[in-house]
Design a protein around this nucleic acid. Sequence first.
DNA 1: TATGAATGAGAATTCATTCAT
DNA 2: AATGAATGAATTCTCATTCAT
Lengths: 201, 201, 201, 201
Amino acid sequence: MSPRTAVQNQEVRAVTRARLLNAALELFATRGYAATSVDAIADEAGVSAGLLYHHFDGKAAVLNAIFEQSLADVQATFAAADRESDARDRLPALLRSALAIVPRHRQFWAVWYGLRMQKDVLRTLGPSVAQFTKAIVRTLEQYLEDIEWPEAGIEARLLFAQIDGLCQHYVLDPAHYPLERVIERLVERYTGGAHHANRAH
Amino acid sequence: MSPRTAVQNQEVRAVTRARLLNAALELFATRGYAATSVDAIADEAGVSAGLLYHHFDGKAAVLNAIFEQSLADVQATFAAADRESDARDRLPALLRSALAIVPRHRQFWAVWYGLRMQKDVLRTLGPSVAQFTKAIVRTLEQYLEDIEWPEAGIEARLLFAQIDGLCQHYVLDPAHYPLERVIERLVERYTGGAHHANRAH
Amino acid sequence: MSPRTAVQNQEVRAVTRARLLNAALELFATRGYAATSVDAIADEAGVSAGLLYHHFDGKAAVLNAIFEQSLADVQATFAAADRESDARDRLPALLRSALAIVPRHRQFWAVWYGLRMQKDVLRTLGPSVAQFTKAIVRTLEQYLEDIEWPEAGIEARLLFAQIDGLCQHYVLDPAHYPLERVIERLVERYTGGAHHANRAH
Amino acid sequence: MSPRTAVQNQEVRAVTRARLLNAALELFATRGYAATSVDAIADEAGVSAGLLYHHFDGKAAVLNAIFEQSLADVQATFAAADRESDARDRLPALLRSALAIVPRHRQFWAVWYGLRMQKDVLRTLGPSVAQFTKAIVRTLEQYLEDIEWPEAGIEARLLFAQIDGLCQHYVLDPAHYPLERVIERLVERYTGGAHHANRAH
DNA sequence: TATGAATGAGAATTCATTCAT
DNA sequence: AATGAATGAATTCTCATTCAT
């Protein structure tokens, strides 16, 4: 009774949706959310602007979908670190998982860093996004306390600053940023007797 | 026709210009550059939108002026650290100067962090802005080499990540961020035998 | 390919068509013709928007079909009054038939009253619709002349105004409008010696 | 300090506003509210579409302004009838004032009649508009009771139906409608001993 | 210097309609 | 017969910018 089968339709829809999301992600990342027009997204995706509205309620909904998509992956990865049985392994695991996440979601991070200063936009993105930053600091602080790092509260701020900062610097110039070496250096600092002796020599 | 003297006019001009810049800074910081209208800036400044065009060539020029204003101060402050005679004092001086700069230019940093992922905007801001980030990393690397820090290249990345990251985290929540303590912790890490022992014990 | 017989298909077609017309009537009546989208009609009818185009040439054709459907009934009812053998019975018969027609076509009247001021829409609805109003006045005038009502031309205007007006007022609030009593009052006025006493002479 | 004087500006603004309102009234009346585009209004007014938004919040606000403008005049005229000292004069005064109002606001009535079936539009027009019809019926009923007309409640419905209906029929064809004679006939009916003779006895 | 009316280009969004299946 | 993905034109609205005064 249906022209295409339901499955075929679902596939077509999924493909178009993915193309729109990719196009939007690309443009939001390079031009910024506010400076990207719906027309430009549709163009980049190779479809008409009207079609975007069959898939999303509007530009804001596209942004939302991007966040849902990427944050789910990010949180899943962080959750994996949390399942390490030995407390000493959690921080390295988390740091190394960042090494994997950041390049995989390079454009998403560009969007995120371009928006996170604007509270009105964040408000439209649901509470989990707004709390994202705070949640990470709390996790880091817990990990540091678990390995009895002194002044864990302050150190957590510094550690988070390092992760956040290097993530951005990588995103700004992924071709040249020595992400792996920087993260390994970071792992060293927070590993084993590392907090007794800062250098591995 | 004009009841004002030339000098009075100059004063009025300067005041209006400053009001426009402050208004723009405030709005760019909270709403983002692209999402801020010229009308909104003029409104916030308490003048007509038309008047903005007597002071600036357009919205982009206002952004430019904001960068000139703030970057000049930032660079002057960093230059002061550079004049420390003892190489060991330069890094602490630079870190502590950040402590002063960041709160003073809180809104500027919000604008900067909201824009720096967008290469097209940066291009309109002149080459000095685009090179800003790289220049700082080079300076940091130099300072670390001066104190014979091993792997200064990688460490400079981490150090910059920390500075950049904490600056943003402060800007995101200035009321609660323990900026001073975080920076002092940072100074400790990079002072004296600090690179031998990461903790102050 | 087709598991239905031709007869079954015809039945299904008729049902779908009726559902579409009902849905359109409902929506045109409450939102107005121009403000009702084809999608909304299809939704309300529980079919896809595409299917509407298998039954009608477009949105305007749906409106046309609604008019054909309802006007046919209206004119048939009025024609019945015309067949009264006694001239004195015609007017009461017509008035009482209105009592029956109006509630039966409540939504149609809402559409009609919402559109009849717009000459461009009327033009697309065929000449019979445009002449509808004038035809009724002529009939009323004839009926009044038949019972030798003085100034039948002017009185026909007033009588039509009453019919038209009460029809609208009923449609605006069918739950509370005392349609029957109002019409009976109207019948009284135009019955028996009423028009002798009715004038101030 | 201002380029044009404040008064000059006010005049220019008022002129443009009036042109927009006239253009909108004209188009709403002939094409209907929903079918009239903002572009068409601006075109008809001889200004750019953007300018409309310097004067009104949007299309709905234009409609609102039209209602405010016309309803104020209508209600003022009806209020004048209410000030007649002799109860017997009130109804004739009200009827004759309609004779004056209707042609003066011909287009407004076309808009009103084209919209009043759509409750969602009315809701945007403020409560006074929604209650407009009911308020008139109540007034008419009161006037009829004052002159001891029997069954004033039902008669008020009929009287209102007549007024409303003839108003519409006039609006539909102002060039040929014998408005004055119809209203005089109406005045006769409700004047003097008419209501004694008017009943079917 | 300053205003604010005015514009035109472009933004987001809606919608009647088509068409492959 | 029926679906729903897709389109393109139109619609509402925003906004940077100009200009007469």
